[in-house]
């Protein structure tokens, strides 16, 4: 344990924690909009394209972070253009882009004379080797992403919810669509150091999937996803640091698995909440000609009687053995 506390004192570990917190906040923020647009795999696609960007940086001895930002943004805008054109085989075009990005990146890395290990840092993250400038870049970019995602939430929400309505409300649809694509690309490069390009989409999507198991509104989904993302990224990092004495545990995959564990816990809760909500949906009020009276009822229904109470117009029906019992004077009616 004291080893672990010592570990937290090292500057490289403190930088890693800062990077994890900022990434954990930013990735689910933009991820919520991607999930809302049913583009959950967009982050994955951009991640593949960004591999070429990293390789270009290695080849030209420029900063891989910045070449990755440029290539990812270009790729994201291209994906958005393909999507907007609404080609029937748009997803095939996207697939071509993804595989081209990944293959190009691996090829260029080889040409640059770099080892596969160097590329692995970007593919699966290398949060503990984050330099001081890396951390500052991550902080600034993540802050921009969070500010835009929260500040422009009404506009981004409306555009993702119903494009046509948003356009007739005078919003510049194309601007907001490209903005989401660019933010997603920047997020990918921010999270590149933390979880790596191949796992970045998980940090964008899994916390959203987890939070929407229990939420009913967009704002609470967004907020809860950001909290869960931060918990998963810092928790995963600390967990991998804690276990590093016993085994080689990579932080990137640990973060993703912690996020997934959260989903596995939340999912049954979501199933339970949804089925309970369905059971308690009010029964429709329909005029009925006659109603049956139950002669002998061995049981008094009431609060906490164990039977599901469902609103039915101005009274309550108790669901009892497949029947609907409603109080009527001294007896129960069959509704």
């Amino acid at each position: 344990m004291s080893d672990f506390i010592d570990l937290l004192g090292y500057p490289f570990m403190q930088r890693a924690i800062i990077a994890a917190v900022f990434t954990g906040l930013a990735a689910p923020a933009i991820g919520t909009y991607l999930v809302q647009r049913r583009q959950a795999l967009m982050g994955d696609g951009i991640g593949h394209v960004a591999v070429t960007g990293v390789a270009l940086g290695l080849l030209t001895h420029a900063s891989p972070t910045w070449t990755a930002v440029v290539v990812a943004v270009l790729g994201a805008v291209l994906i958005e253009v393909i999507r907007e054109r609404g080609h029937t085989n748009g997803d095939v075009a996207l697939a071509l882009l993804f595989y081209g990005g990944l293959a190009g990146g691996v090829l260029l890395t080889g040409l640059a004379g770099q080892s596969a290990n160097r590329l692995n840092e970007f593919l699966f993250g290398a949060i503990t080797t984050t330099s001081r400038t890396d951390v500052i870049v991550v902080m600034v970019l993540a802050a921009v992403i969070v500010l835009v995602c929260v500040g422009l939430a009404p506009q981004l929400f409306a555009v993702a919810q119903d494009q046509e309505f948003a356009r007739v409300a005078g919003l510049n649809i194309r601007f907001y669509n490209v903005l989401v694509a660019v933010l997603a690309a920047v997020t990918v490069t921010v999270a590149m150091r933390t979880v790596g390009l191949l796992l970045v989409s998980a940090l964008m999507v899994v916390p959203v999937a987890t939070s929407q198991q229990v939420t009913r509104s967009f704002r609470s989904t967004l907020g809860a996803a950001m909290v869960l993302g931060t918990v998963a990224s810092t928790g995963g990092l600390l967990l991998s640091a804690y276990t590093s004495n016993y085994a080689r545990v990579a932080p990137g995959p640990t973060i993703v698995l912690v996020a997934l564990a959260g989903f596995v816990i939340a999912w049954p809760v979501g199933v339970f909440l949804r089925s309970r909500r369905r059971l308690r949906q009010p029964f429709p009020v329909v005029e009925v000609a006659a109603h049956e009276v139950i002669d002998e009822h061995p049981h008094d229904h009431g609060r906490d009687c164990g039977h599901v109470a469902v609103e039915h117009g101005d009274h309550v029906d108790y669901v009892h053995g497949g029947h609907r019992h409603a109080v009527h004077g001294q007896h129960y009616d069959e509704h």
Binding site: V35, Q212, R216, S217, T221
Partner: peptide
């Protein structure tokens, strides 16, 4: 509806 829950009020 969409990919993320939204309340009636939000819409």
């Amino acid at each position: 509806g969409s990919g993320v829950p939204a309340s009636v009020w939000e819409i």
